[in-house]
Design a protein around this nucleic acid. Sequence first.
DNA 1: TGAAAACGTTGACCTAGGGCAATGCTTTTC
DNA 2: GAAAAGCATTGCCCTAGGTCAACGTTTTCA
Lengths: 189, 189
Amino acid sequence: MYSLLKAFIKSRTSIDDASLDSICSHFALVKAKRNELLLNYSDTCQHYYFVNKGSIRLYTINKEGIETTRFFAFEGGFGTALPSLIDQTPAREYMQTIEKSELLRISRTDFYRLVDTVPQFAFIYRQILELGFITAQKRIYGFQGFDAMEKVKWLVQHQPNLLTRVSNKMAASYLGLSPSTLSRIKARL
Amino acid sequence: MYSLLKAFIKSRTSIDDASLDSICSHFALVKAKRNELLLNYSDTCQHYYFVNKGSIRLYTINKEGIETTRFFAFEGGFGTALPSLIDQTPAREYMQTIEKSELLRISRTDFYRLVDTVPQFAFIYRQILELGFITAQKRIYGFQGFDAMEKVKWLVQHQPNLLTRVSNKMAASYLGLSPSTLSRIKARL
DNA sequence: TGAAAACGTTGACCTAGGGCAATGCTTTTC
DNA sequence: GAAAAGCATTGCCCTAGGTCAACGTTTTCA
């Protein structure tokens, strides 16, 4: 049950098996079917999720009803409504599974206790934050001043599995394109 | 010389004066005039900067010659080409002062040594990363699915000083609008 | 301090991409 | 396994915002 999570941690820091087990013991298994809502718009996020199987998506809907997807997490990745988890304000975004999934989740309290007490865990959290920050920056640079075709090519380059794994509609909302436009672009790729 | 930096640190963590002085001793004063380039496109970033006076800007230029600004730092703020600093790859972005400035800079080596040895400093770095991440997320949500007018209003809401402090051109490149469009929008605000 | 360069604003025009709707196709549900 | 709901694709039309150019103003620096 914890093999993927252990692999994730081991690949990022050196740690003995006892500490590893102790870390894992704070993660509980959650099974969810397709399109299950893990966090609602006005909820305050209380858990960090690790994807064992399936996938989750973070997105919001603005007042005109337009969906914007911010993040996907697949097998072996962490995901949560981090801004809400960090400062305990309402998420103003949704978190949902997009496939039948098995998730491991840890409570905010346990998570930060691990960060404060286990140096290797603090290091991993730092890595997650650094990587998240870098990815966000790349996305800002990558999406501004790019036309639709360039955005799609960028995605094919940097996250090739995404286009095959998620629906056209979700990929479009991630790229900031309408589904029709994305469909047209793909036709002439 | 270190008063602003000390205030920054003290406002975020509790720390004794000796540690504070020891931290500050790693920061060197750099004076720069307006529009001075602190980091070139193909450079790898080696310093973290704290703005004592003036302001800096991080931006890139894509192959069509379009400028995109990612970040501004003003008095009392930290700024650097973080992705490059973190993983020591060429920045592929520029860092420049946009006013006559006084900066305090710390080398990457010293910075990470402080992170690893001074818990309060590690905590501040974590805060910077968390905040940077949250800001980036807000920007992704805020700018996708917004039209030009909404973007400008968003900016007036969230960073009101920016529009008065930087040139129309730079603000436009931050918002992902052409200077003409931003100008037109401001006229009917 | 004065010439030159850069910037802001505005008008006229144009185009990328969004909205909408029609038509299959696929997936879900009971 | 049939009905319904949702999704992808595509054609037609339209509009937000980009480009380009002109002009006045501000900034720069020799």
